[in-house]
């Protein structure tokens, strides 16, 4: 099926893009990689008279390391670019590995991180790990710039805290301590994950474990019992022993998740997957 006709605007700077959106209002939408939007336009479940293509805006591209060590990922960075970026590979190898396995090669080449976050399809990989990493997003709109923690950005299925006239400019990740390791493990029968679990384990930080489950519910869910149990653990425990102490808490967290039966699997099956994937992710973070 072909998409209905629309006007394609190709602004070269952010101000022009924001002005175009203000001019056309609800009849216009922003377009990044197109792996979500164009599919929806072709399926005729979405229609816009004006599509504002952001790909000409250089300010939204690339991965930068700020002076304070914060990693700034431009929203137009593709999954493939993130997977192969030297800064990400060195500082966040867990995130580079995630980006290497997103969907298929076509999606990784064309799909952007900003697009995934803004479209807010629940069965996505990146949002879960970004929540575990305590990342935050920078939004630009007619009223200026604002920052929102990734954990508060996702409000539900296809719904985020971004206003319609705002552009997601970048995703910021605070510098990780030397003893911090992150991992993401997912499983699904399709290219989208049925369940994904992200763990960030810090051996030199009071906040020892950040554990999040994604794709199983409307937005990423924190496994707080497991995090609290991890804070009580002695340092230097081997991975198997650490998991043995956390297993019950993770299972309790998994049972509390508001999961539903769908094409990706039954609710109980997906809750079971949370425990399995949490074990793999935690063990990947520990020596």
């Amino acid at each position: 099926m072909r998409a209905r006709k629309f006007f394609l605007h190709r602004p070269t700077d952010l101000d022009e893009a924001i002005r175009l959106k203000a001019e056309h209002g609800d009849a216009a939408t922003f377009h990044a990689g197109g792996t979500e939007l164009l599919v929806a336009l072709k399926a005729h479940v979405l229609h816009y008279e004006h599509v504002i293509d952001l790909k000409q805006i250089e300010a939204l591209k690339g991965v930068r390391l700020r002076d304070d060590g914060t990693i700034s990922i431009g929203s137009l960075s593709t999954h493939d670019r993130i997977a192969n970026d030297p800064i990400i590979r060195e500082s966040l190898p867990g995130y580079a590995a995630l980006s290497e396995h997103v969907a298929n090669i076509r999606v990784r080449i064309a799909g952007t991180l900003g697009g995934v976050l803004c479209f807010a399809e629940p069965h996505a990989d990146a949002p879960t790990l970004l929540c575990a990493l305590d990342a935050w997003v920078v939004l630009l709109g007619p009223d200026g710039e604002r920052e929102i923690p990734s954990r508060d950005f996702h409000l539900g299925e296809f719904t985020t805290a971004r206003a319609d006239d705002e552009i997601l400019a970048s995703i910021e990740i605070a510098p990780q301590s030397a003893g911090t390791r992150s991992a993401y493990r997912s499983f699904g029968h399709t290219e989208r994950p049925a369940v994904g679990v992200a763990a960030v384990w810090s051996t030199d930080n009071a906040q020892r474990l950040s554990l999040w489950a994604g794709a199983i519910s409307a937005c990423p869910t924190r496994l707080s019992r497991a995090e609290e149990a991890a804070a009580e653990l002695d340092g230097g425990l081997p991975a198997e022993a650490a998991w043995g102490r956390l297993r019950d808490a993770v299972r309790a967290d998994a049972q509390a998740i508001d999961a539903h039966d769908d094409l990706h699997g039954g609710a109980d099956y997906k809750r079971h997957l949370v425990s399995v994937l949490a074990e793999r992710a935690i063990k990947a973070c520990l020596p």
Binding site: V45, E157, F158, A218, H260, D261, D262, L263
Partner: peptide, 13 residues
């Protein structure tokens, strides 16, 4: 229909 393909949980919710 096509919008229902968003998924049963979303429509039900």
């Amino acid at each position: 229909g096509r919008l229902a393909s968003l998924g049963y949980p979303i429509v039900r919710k």
